[in-house]
Each structure stands twice: as C-alpha cells, then as structure tokens.
C-alpha cells in the first residue's frame, strides 16, 4: 500500500443552513482496498460523497485524489480524473434504453461539435457496454427503457455505467439498499471481482453484514465527523459505534431514508 491514500478528505466542513452536515471530517481511502463508510441516518455520509465528487463545495477543508487537489473541481472533472460514483437514490436516464444509458457514459471527453457528426455508440462501444451489462447480469434488458427497470436492476445499471469509463475509484452510496438478498450477494461478488483487478471502492451501506464481509477498512461517521476507522473486526466491537447509532437515532431525525421515493423522483 502506498503511503498517501488515493482519496483523502481532509478536515472537511459543510453546513446546510443550521445543519452541520460535515464538521472536521477526515477520511482516507487506500489504493486497492474496499473501504466502508457507516453511520446513522443523517450522519453526513452522502454529503461526504457529494463534496468528494464535486456535487457540493466544502466550506472548509481539502480533498485530494491521487495527490491532486480536487476541492473545487466540478463533477465532470472529478469523473474524468477517475473518481466515479453511484447515487443513493439511483440516477439513471429513465427515458433512454439501458444500452443508451451505457453509451452516454462512454461519451466522456468527446468534443461537442465533432460529436454532432458521429453516430452514437460505435460497434466497439456497444460491445463493451454489452459486456459490462453481462458482467452485472442485466444484458438481456439492454433494449428496455431504463425507466422500466426494477429498483435493484437500476442499482446494477448504475454500477455498470460507472464502470464504462473505467474509473480508478468508485464510490457506492448504498448499493444494497432496497435490494433483495440474492442480488446483494451478486453485487458484493462483482465488487470483489473488480477489486481484485485493482479497483478501489468506497462503500456507504446500512447493511452491516454486507459491509463487514466486504470491506477491508470501515470508517464510522457520527454527526458529520469520522469518529473511527479500522478493520471490520475492531469496528464491530468498538463501543463508540453503538453509541453513535443509538445516540444519533435519538438526537436527530434522519433527513432522507434509504428507501426514499425513488419511483416518484425518477419520473
């Protein structure tokens, strides 16, 4: 393992009005690992992903990706640098077909005007897209409108199209949320397989079994701060974790439940 983490969030602070979503939060993700991020609802996990991928700006603090400062980079720039992500409430292009969704992801970095004269999706891109769809197990849905996919299938599609651009690090926000158990195992297998090929993962998940069996390192967040990082075995038995969960649940109402209303939102 390298000395400096591949992705490093350094003392990030972020407030929404009166809510301090992140306060002096520092987390590092080592290259080649599967890192986990857990914490009660509203503890700032999604916000941490948002600031790391350019969707939100930190008020204070810095973010580094492979030694480069990306604190104020825009989402497309962050993605181009090799930091891909999925969303807690899956975000797919619901009126495009599954294949077209994949092709959008392979557009990265194409010039605007020349793209007017090029046909969407070269045979090579289509083949690769199909391979990735096979990889996550939804190739037979390629011609379906993405809007007709089930919740779990959407999660898989999102994972597949993040893979198109071959990012070095992938942030997954609740990949198992609302997904049936067999599909959860399927997702976990895919993540392990990709990790074996060298991809780094940073996974937010409420499913403890999933996190503990999958991750090499787990970070616990509580009220916007990373209170503890360690291997699953130590984290599991740390009293502070239980405190965080119980305390957090009593103190604050969760902002957005993992189940959300994805159906309505994606319309």
């Amino acid at each position: 393992m390298s000395s400096a983490p591949l992705l490093l969030v350094d003392s990030a602070c972020k407030a929404f009005g009166g809510v301090q979503a992140l306060s002096e939060c520092s987390v590092g993700v080592e290259e080649g690992t599967i890192a986990g991020l857990i914490g009660p609802n509203g503890s700032g996990k999604t916000t941490l992903f948002n600031v790391a991928t350019g969707y939100e700006r930190v008020d204070r603090g810095e973010i580094y990706f492979s030694g480069r400062r990306i604190t104020r980079a825009s989402p497309d720039r962050v993605f181009a640098l090799g930091l891909g992500r999925t969303f807690q409430l899956t975000r797919i292009f619901s009126r495009l077909s599954v294949m077209e969704n994949m092709l959008v992801a392979s557009q990265a970095g194409r010039r605007g005007l020349r793209s007017l004269c090029t046909r969407a999706g070269s045979p090579g891109e289509r083949r690769r897209a199909l391979e990735l769809l096979e990889f996550v197990g939804i190739a037979r849905l390629a011609s379906k409108p993405a809007g007709s996919l089930s919740y779990g299938q959407r999660k898989l599609l999102e994972l597949a199209y993040v893979l198109v651009a071959d990012p070095a690090v992938i942030l997954l926000d609740e990949p198992a949320g609302g997904v049936n158990p067999s599909l959860i195992n399927h997702i976990a297998d895919r993540i392990r397989e990709l990790n074996r090929q060298g991809k780094t993962f940073f996974v937010v998940e409420h499913n403890m079994e999933f996190v503990m069996s999958l991750c090499h390192q787990v970070t616990v967040m509580h009220q916007g701060t990373a209170i503890l990082t360690g291997p699953p075995s130590t984290v599991r038995s740390d009293p502070r974790v239980l405190d965080a969960y119980l305390g957090g649940a009593l103190e604050e109402d969760p902002g957005d439940g993992p189940e959300g209303q994805d159906g309505a939102g994606s319309l």
Partner: peptide, 19 residues
C-alpha cells in the same frame, strides 16, 4: 444522445463527463 441524457437527468449526465 448527450442531449437526451440531459433531458432525463442533467446532473447525472454532467457527472458522466457530458459537457
């Protein structure tokens, strides 16, 4: 295709490298 992606979810398209 980029335009259609914008129609469905502009921010997502942005994060996938669509300018």
């Amino acid at each position: 295709l980029q335009l259609l992606a914008i129609r469905d979810d502009e921010d997502r398209a942005l994060s996938l490298g669509v300018r």
